[in-house]
Amino acid sequence: MTQNPFEEFQSFQYRKTSFPLDRIVHTAEAVMDRIRLGYEKLLEEEAKELVWMVQYNTIIKAYEVAEKYIKEIDYSAEDIEDFCFALENTQRIPYLIPGPAGIYISALCNDAREEEIVLKLSELKTEINLIGFRLPKGKRLMVEGDTGDFTGIGIEGGELVVEGNSKNWTGAGMRSGKICVKKNIGLHTGEWMMGGEIHVGGRVRGLGNIVDGKVYEREKLVYPGKARYPNVYY
């Protein structure tokens, strides 16, 4: 019989006490793994060549795929925030494609059990597109930091608060609900907006072709109004 080089440790019994921190961290890691896996599957299905075009049907399809994977996961608002930061860590998630990532995050928010979700994203280097897509009635999503293009498109009655700036096409196609952007907003704001309100704390760079709804700039109603024309830079 070969010499057992570890023989003296044979009787060592490490009293592994269950430490709550380990449990919490382990659970969070496990959830994150599943969320990450869902995102990777979404990319596999919807962005095979790592290219994704923002079109009405691609958005709808991607959202449906995202919902399919999310349904199986039990997660919290903090998990969504962690996922947003994980997206920037290339070691953990290899590809950040802004479109599908935004759709996926929106699906996560819409499906979360919490009614109010706070995402502290101010240190995030990337501005996430499409955040708040189809935010349903009764949900409030607060984003600390800036958001990218297509913020809050197609909102379905929910309330989206952006503590920073948001880029172009914000609130496009929204039906009802409210978008509050504390700082400035880009071009095409409210394009094909059918209802609801957009409140901007700073400047609106340009309005889109609005069908219905209201847009406020520094508490002043700018749509409907006389002086405003679509995409006029002022």
């Binding site: 023989e7 440790f9 009787s11 060592f12 490490y14």
Partner: peptide
Amino acid sequence: SDHLKDALALGSKIFQ
């Protein structure tokens, strides 16, 4: 230390 002693104990068990 605990993890290492545990690993050595595990090594002993696998060895046997």
